[in-house]
Simulated scan of single mutants.
Amino acid sequence: MMQDPISSKICWRKLIQIFCAWTLFCAPVLSAAKTVHQKIKDPTVQTPPLGKIPRVIAELSPQTKFAFVVDKALRTLSLWKNAQVPSLFAAYPTDMGRKPGNKLYRGDYKTPEGIYFFQETFTQPYLDFSLYGRRAFTMNYPNYFDLLQNKTGSGIWLHAIPDTQSLNRGSKGCVVVRNNVIEKLKKYIQLKNTPIVVQDKVDYIPPKEWSQQNHSLNQWLAEWKKAWESKNLEEYISYYSEDFKSLGMNKTKWKKYKDELNSKYKFIRVELENTDILKHNDQYIFRFQQKYQSDENQDFGEKYLYVKSVDGKLKILSEQWRALPSAKSTSEKTPTVLASGRKKDDPS
């Protein structure tokens, strides 16, 4: 049967009208989507100066293979590999809090500046992909120094964003990189160990100056240890700040406590190993493994010294200690473990 030519023309006319209507409706949408995609442009990575080292990384122990440094001024996250002198391993553009400056309180949309350590990691389905991408690593904000300054807030992460989001959008305070970058970085992060130091503007120094800083800080630590082992109480306590607090004791009570232990033990031996030294402005964290031995007790654990430069001299603000799995003690009783992780009756 032959098709009616008039009906055929009407049918084609309707098809053309439908196509034109679809084009008029969809073309602007597609054009807008293309325009949005074209506008997404990441900050240009500003590679740290060749042959220089961030002052903030004063020393990395053999157990700390890598350290992260965020330079807000350069909008760059750099990864530094542990070596005789730390060396630049990689650098990536990064986003941060949408408001400039150091974080002070919850909801100020600023990225905190200081010395932090990665704690946990989250992946799908526990993350909102549109906000945090494929993966996030939590940081221990607020740290000890932040708490001293009454800073508030939490949930500061290193996380990713999808390619449809801009690295210029500004975060609520987190450090942000691309999905492909965080997948590269995950292999270099050891939870509870790898540090990340965030600064408004990082000071990069030549190897000779870095070595001088390294020597000076290690010498200070060795002299503190020597004063402790020799039971020279006045010399030992001179390393502590007037604002010192630890285990519920201030400096006066700490001195009395140490005096009692000096009288109790015939000898004290202390060995320090695997030392990390990190710096942020006048703040320092000394982290090391400590072997302690006296004629009545011995233990092995990880110690943090929170130190501040006061009038050009380093002073200890606090100590934290926790037993490591291989710790051995001659004491038959089970010691009380405080919130800090340190044993209540621990002589160290």
Rank of each mutant, 00 (worst) to 15 (best):
M2I: 09
W12G: 05
L15N: 02
I16H: 09
T23H: 07
K34F: 12
P43E: 00
V45T: 07
P48V: 00
P49F: 07
R55M: 13
I57P: 01
L60Q: 12
P62K: 06
V69W: 00
R75G: 12
T76Y: 00
L79M: 01
A83N: 13
F89S: 01
F89N: 00
D95L: 04
K99M: 10
N102F: 07
L104V: 03
Y105M: 14
P112L: 04
E113C: 07
I115K: 00
Y116G: 09
F117A: 09
F117H: 05
F122R: 08
P125L: 09
L127I: 09
S130K: 09
R134S: 15
A136H: 05
A136G: 12
P142M: 07
D146F: 03
L147T: 06
Q149Y: 06
Q149C: 06
W157A: 06
A160H: 01
S166A: 12
L167K: 02
N168M: 11
R169V: 14
G170V: 01
E183W: 00
I189R: 00
P195Y: 02
V198K: 03
I205Q: 07
P207W: 05
E223D: 13
K225F: 08
K226L: 09
W228Y: 14
E234A: 14
E234S: 15
Y236N: 11
D243R: 12
D243H: 08
F244P: 05
S246V: 01
K264A: 13
F267H: 10
V270P: 05
E271Y: 11
L272T: 11
E273T: 05
N281S: 12
Y284N: 04
F286D: 01
F286N: 02
Y292G: 02
Q293V: 09
Q298V: 01
Q298K: 09
F300D: 03
G301N: 03
G301I: 01
E302Q: 11
S309C: 15
D311R: 06
G312D: 03
K313C: 13
I316Q: 06
L317W: 04
P325E: 05
S326H: 01
A327C: 11
K328W: 10
P335D: 11
V337P: 01
A339K: 12
A339N: 06
D345S: 08
